[in-house]
């Protein structure tokens, strides 16, 4: 499988995503500069975390105007797998590929720590190797992860199983106490209606190797490969 890791000016998890795809799960990967216009030949696209354009206007607001985003939209429309992590998630929101918007964390501070997540939907190409309602641990690192949708949209995405990941305790309960940023419904990750575009604030690429003390993120990349090799063909 061939992954494209998009590099925007200010992306800083691009190397981490490349590393996990290439050296940990053993697939091929290319860095794709944001001025490229063609994504043909790739099986999956990752929009990595970071501070594209310094987050100076609004997270993701500038990056979504990059030439490559038109290609990402086309790629997604044709059913290609698009994974947006952290800033990548924010860019997907700005681009309208996913519903909702991001607000500042309710603490108004940047937060870097491990959180527990519950996998609420395992019927996506990104989560198919997890167990239903599995509780996993992943790091978050963001100042703007307070996901918001209006009530109508919330009902819609819930009904449509688009809520893929929620912040929970280790017991799997999504209480307000364990919500790190104030995100509505403790949402940590959502997908589009077709399920081929996933945005998530936690960083699976930071927990894909035993030396890092946690391999819960490995399963996400493994799921993508499994889906592309076994299900999509």
């Amino acid at each position: 499988m061939k992954f494209a890791v998009i590099v925007f000016p200010g992306s800083n998890c691009d190397h981490d995503c490349y590393h996990v795809v290439k050296h940990v799960i053993g697939q091929s990967a290319d860095f794709v500069w944001h001025k490229e216009k063609d994504l043909s030949g790739y099986d999956a696209v990752i929009l990595p975390g970071g501070f594209s354009y310094g987050d100076y206007l609004r997270t993701g607001a500038m990056a979504r105007l990059s030439p490559v985003m038109k290609a990402v939209e086309d790629f997604a429309r044709q059913g290609g797998l698009v994974l947006g992590i952290c800033n990548g998630f924010q860019i997907l929101l700005e681009a309208g590929l996913l519903p909702g918007a991001m607000l500042r964390n309710r603490s108004l501070q940047f937060i870097c720590k491990d959180v527990y997540l519950r996998v609420d939907n395992i019927n996506t190409p990104f989560t198919c190797n997890y167990v239903e309602n599995q509780v996993v641990r992943m790091p978050i690192a963001h100042a703007e992860g307070n996901y918001y949708v209006d009530q109508e949209t919330y009902t819609h995405i819930q009904k449509n199983n688009q809520i893929v990941l929620r912040y929970t305790g280790s017991d799997g309960r999504p209480t307000d106490e364990v919500n790190p940023n104030g995100s509505i419904g403790n949402i940590a990750g959502v997908c589009n209606e077709k399920g081929n575009v996933l945005g998530m604030m936690p960083h699976p690429e930071r927990c894909g190797e035993r030396i890092l003390g946690n391999t819960d993120g490995y399963i996400l990349f493994e799921s993508m490969v499994y889906y592309m090799e076994k299900v999509a063909r």
């Binding site: 590393h19 975390g49 501070q109 940047f110 937060i111 870097c112 790091p139 030396i211």
Partner: peptide
């Protein structure tokens, strides 16, 4: 303090802040 710092980006941090010394692996 360290919760406000991204101490895991680059995925090399193998001893997180809080212990006697910080440790990073060399990929």
């Amino acid at each position: 303090i360290y919760r406000q710092y991204d101490h895991m980006v680059r995925t090399d941090t193998i001893v997180l802040p809080g212990s006697d010394a910080a440790v990073i692996r060399v990929k």
